[in-house]
Amino acid sequence: MEQLKELIMKGNAKETVERVRKLLEGGSDPGGLLQEVMIPAMDEVGDLFQKGEYFVPEMLVAARAMQQGLTVLKPRLVASGIEPIGKVIIGTVKGDLHDIGKNLAVMALEGAGFEVIDLGTDVAPERFIDAIKEHKPQVIGMSALLTTTMLAMKDTIKAIEDAGIRGQIKIMIGGAPIRQEFCDEVGADFFAPDSTAGRNYARNVVTGEA
């Protein structure tokens, strides 16, 4: 088990897959593997990223190892009736095509056991609204890179309010130009300075702590 955690943290995808397979063949509980090994491994990766000890490449290779390990684990999880801990819809706002920050957030959330619906980049408010109605998530994440494109967050939140579904969801925002004052001004619920903070907030939402 400890070895699997190490393999994920070091981003060794091939050996992660092998190790998950062997542990399952050896009778390990799929839910236990996910909850007690793989999610804590990605948690630690996120924490190291937040502390400035891991960087974008380390985060990406660890997430790749996690994802490949999950492809082996998922059928067994489904068979055991284990569900994601919550649902998040995420996207880069209209007019903005930058997505590395958003992708890091997706990885952190998936690594924490969330189902993430990634709407991609340049997402118009209507697409957020349609996705909320369709998927009924607990949390919405919005990202922007520029001081000009972040203004689309305000329009999106307004559109969600006008659609009468604001009360159903919590909204977190992040990106290079975002600050707490902007978060307060546009009426978002949380400013995530990095992907780990976003992951922690989403967890707090589903456990009722936020």
Binding site: F55, V56, P57, P193
Partner: peptide, 12 residues
């Protein structure tokens, strides 16, 4: 870099 650090480690 980006908001919280360098893209790759200072070592790289």
């Amino acid at each position: 870099g980006f908001f919280s650090g360098t893209f790759v480690s200072p070592k790289v």
